[in-house]
Amino acid sequence: MASMEQIEMDKHRKSLDRDVSHLVDKYLKAMEWDIPDVDEPAARQMILDEIKREVGRIESQH
């Protein structure tokens, strides 16, 4: 049986996915302003790697 927290997270998963996707797009657009010929796949991966590092930092604080 799923916990109440898991049930609540299931309700918010799509919204969380959208938020993270928008966050990546936000920083990719900022890079494109500064670097017109940006390597989009490489830039996207760099952004995702930084998000993962930040999640790790947040996890280590709690």
Rank of each mutant, 00 (worst) to 15 (best):
Q61E: 08
V55R: 13
L23N: 06
R57N: 13
M46Y: 03
H12I: 06
L48C: 06
E54C: 11
D25Y: 05
I58A: 14
L48P: 00
H62A: 05
K11W: 07
D34V: 01
Q61P: 00
M9F: 12
I35A: 02
M4Q: 14
S21G: 09
S15Y: 07
D25T: 09
V55M: 14
I35S: 02
H22G: 06
V38F: 00
M46S: 04
E50F: 09
P41V: 05
E32C: 02
S15R: 06
E59M: 13
D17T: 07
L16S: 08
L16C: 05
R44A: 05
R53T: 09
S3E: 09
K11N: 08
H12D: 10
D34P: 00
E40Y: 06
D37F: 02
E50Q: 13
G56E: 10
K11M: 11
M9Y: 08
K26D: 08
I35K: 02
E59S: 08
E59W: 11
D25V: 07
I35H: 04
E32M: 12
V55G: 07
E8S: 09
A43V: 02
D10T: 07
W33L: 11
L16M: 14
E5R: 08
H62W: 06
M31W: 01
S60D: 10
I7A: 07
K11I: 04
D10K: 12
M9H: 05
L23F: 13
E50V: 05
S21V: 08
R44T: 08
K14V: 06
I7T: 08
P41D: 09
M46Q: 06
E54K: 15
L48Y: 03
K26Q: 12
R53I: 08
I51G: 03
G56D: 13
D17A: 12
